[in-house]
Design a protein around this nucleic acid. Structure first.
Lengths: 117, 117
DNA sequence: AAGATAGGTAGGAGATTCCCTACGGGTCAA
DNA sequence: TTGACCCGTAGGGAATCTCCTACCTATCTT
């Protein structure tokens, strides 16, 4: 329907990837520990390695990690660019939580909507 | 297990709520159109109203919207505070996409990991 | 060449998600 | 009070998610 279909698909994959605590933890491990093979990542989870592989696949398809082969290992690295897009998505909401802290919320509330019954 | 269990549950609910394009669109409608009754929101979706009600419930339980009753209507309003927490979550990743733009990525890559085979 | 190691894919079970059609509880108008 | 309207919940079906146990390929070691 929309002309931005491909972009929205990418956005959807990123948000869906972030919806799992396991996958967010993988991103944190790669952020704090640098690029790592699967084995090193797997030590932090109470889950079999094939399951972790599937999580890595979801992260890969969202563009949040990349893979480099090194011998029989595959080194995963954080790719933060899609997170920059999440921040962009967040930006138009920023004034809403800032306004609320300043107590201006009620003023904005009455503008588009009617008064209370 | 962890002492931050309750916090993580909240974080999980927020990310899970954002994982649906429909729910993100609801947030956008409330952001751009101000507080609205369910009926007004429903006009924008090709979905029956009970289904939208369930999406609103997910958003409510994530703290992303609040409900005010006005006669037989329920006015939903955007609550952006959880999105501020998403921004906080995003913050430690920020230097990764900034570094990458400056071409420093390879330098950081070789620091925690070994050289290539 | 044979065995061990790293890690992916296949296929399936159980839980969860997302939509639907009914239906019920309030609220307003006649 | 009766009926129309707003919106939530109940229950169910199809699809998807998330984990598992095999099993496979590729690489390194001996």
């Amino acid at each position: 329907m929309t002309t931005t279909g491909a972009r929205e698909d990418a956005e959807d994959r990123v948000f869906a990837a972030l919806a799992s605590a396991t996958r967010r933890e993988v991103l944190r491990l790669l952020r704090d520990g640098g690029p790592q093979p699967v084995q090193a990542l797997a030590e932090h989870f109470a889950m079999r390695r094939p399951s972790l592989s599937e999580h890595l696949k979801v992260l890969r398809e969202a563009g949040l990690v990349s893979e480099r082969r090194s011998g029989r290992q595959r080194i995963y690295r954080l790719e933060a660019a899609p997170l920059a897009e999440v921040q962009d998505w967040l930006h138009p909401y920023e004034r809403f939580w800032r306004d609320r802290l300043k107590g201006l919320a009620e003023l904005l509330d009455r503008m588009p909507d009617g008064d209370r019954p």
